[in-house]
Design a protein around this nucleic acid. Structure first.
Lengths: 149, 149
DNA sequence: ATGTATGCAAACCATTTGCAATGAC
DNA sequence: GTCATTGCAAATGGTTTGCATACAT
């Protein structure tokens, strides 16, 4: 957390921006999320935690955090942007259950290594998103039960 | 094309829907796209080709084609949905140049095979999207030129 | 005849923009 | 004091919805 704040502070100084309390409070609250969050969820969470900020400020902050690589954005299949902390995390994949909608994250180093070199026609891969769509174990079981009935 | 129409016709019959001229005209025009298209582009294209249909009808059709697996949808990083024909195509990846925005498609069978088995905790992978973000060869060259100046 | 599909207009909703007031420097 | 940032309200734009009319069955 301290390192993340440091990164943000450095970036702010470097770009001649301003160290507002809002930005650091938002960064702190984001750190409490284990998985993904939307701006709307974050908006509610900030209010709940007695540090209400406007949506404008959230969008502004989130943009800033993206710039200094503290978070990343996913759109999956909807029109809503999902964010998650990026700092110190290895690249990972998302598996989305098309039945219950649950999103799970996991890593696979071999695959990551391979993907980094899969660029075509001299394309230099800097990051990637791998989304797996399918059916989670739980939903597979439920489906099986329904067949057996 | 005939097989795609057949698939659509079958699906329509099976679900008790209706074989409207719009649906088949839209399917035909979609087949003329080599890459991705948005609903807005398709809207303009249908008018251009003297088969004007409303946006409602397009959204309806596109939803139907998704259901019978004739097309697929990607959101990449924006809030706009991109569609492309799926029929008879092997799974492929997208590489998106973060400088010029160009989207290129390519395949890699080894990778595809591997990805299909990467499901975690019993997750059964049915499809996937792999988006590579980075810099295309052309933009790398331009960047190089600017450094040399 | 029945009820699905179309097309128009209005509604939706996440995100963006404009702008006056605030506050970091 | 200067000017970036905040917060409010309004605008934007892709997508969705409601509903009367048209038309596939």
């Amino acid at each position: 957390m301290e390192r993340e704040k440091q990164i943000l502070a450095n970036y702010i100084k470097e770009k001649g921006l301003r160290k507002t309390p809002e930005r650091f409070a938002i960064l702190e609250k984001i750190a409490e999320y284990k998985g993904h969050f939307t701006v709307d969820e974050l908006f509610a969470y900030m209010h709940e935690k007695n540090f209400p900020v406007s949506r404008s400020t959230l969008y502004n902050a989130v943009e800033l955090f993206l710039e200094c690589n503290l978070i990343e954005r996913h759109t999956f299949d909807s029109n809503v942007a999902y964010y998650e902390r990026k700092f110190n995390k290895e690249p990972h994949n998302h598996q989305i259950c098309t039945v219950c909608g649950k999103i799970t994250k996991h890593r696979n180093r071999d695959l990551t290594r391979q993907i980094k070199h899969v660029g075509f026609r001299g394309f230099k891969v800097e990051s990637y998103q791998l989304n797996l769509y399918g059916i989670c174990k739980k939903c597979q079981r439920e489906a099986q039960k329904n067949i057996e009935k």
